[in-house]
């Protein structure tokens, strides 16, 4: 699946779209992401028609906003995930998704020493993919539900006949593992 080369390839395609308005690169991105977005949106409760209309909107947004993409901050898949998530909220719930404004004078800025993430986005993404594959099945399944199904954790608990506390603790365990992997801590496996 996604190793650093694959993450690099996708980021490169998105940069070609941003800088050269490269339609071939855009088609390659479409071919990669559209079938994944469809699976994401179907699991979110859309029918096939609504899912495809939403994919159209997402991909047109990718084309228009490609200039905002910063490969030092995020992998292409993260950036496209965020667009698809916002579009899904708009389409399914007709809600707004409040977000902070990075240029707001009232925003408390990041600490300047900023030695926060030393690892490259590509490396982190590759470690993350591996850590997701290695999650215990019951944690991975709940995590996918939490991200894909547009359901409150209490609804997930009900559907799975699990106490809410169990759902929350499994999700926390899964996140703790992934966070650890992203920080480069692979329990000595690669040392």
């Amino acid at each position: 699946m996604a190793d650093t080369t694959e993450v690099d390839r996708l980021n490169g395609l998105l940069l070609c779209v941003a800088r050269q308005r490269d339609r071939q690169a855009f088609v390659a991105l479409f071919n990669h992401f559209a079938p994944r977005l469809k699976s994401f949106l179907l699991r979110g409760g859309m029918d096939a028609g609504a899912a495809e209309e939403t994919i159209q909107d997402v991909m047109v947004t990718v084309w228009r906003r490609a200039g905002d993409f910063d490969p030092s901050l995020a992998a292409a898949s993260t950036w496209i995930f965020a667009i698809a998530r916002n579009r899904r909220i708009d389409r399914l719930r007709r809600d707004r998704r409040p977000a902070f404004d990075p240029d707001d004078p009232a925003l408390v800025p990041d600490p300047v020493d900023g030695a926060m993430e030393m690892m490259l986005v590509e490396e982190r993404a590759a470690l993350l993919h591996r850590a997701i594959r290695e999650l215990p099945a019951e944690q991975a399944e709940l995590l996918r539900m939490a991200y894909f199904e547009d359901k409150a954790h209490s609804a997930i608990a009900q559907e799975r006949h699990l106490p809410l506390g169990t759902v929350k603790s499994r999700l926390r365990l899964a996140l703790a593992r992934l966070r650890k992997a992203m920080s480069g801590d692979t329990l000595g496996e690669q040392a």
Partner: peptide, 20 residues
């Protein structure tokens, strides 16, 4: 930001469904 990265990784790793 980390949680969105996880979302991106899950999207990347999800099964694919053919589009029209």
């Amino acid at each position: 930001t980390r949680l969105e990265e996880i979302g991106g990784a899950l999207l990347e790793g999800t099964e694919q469904v053919a589009v029209g």
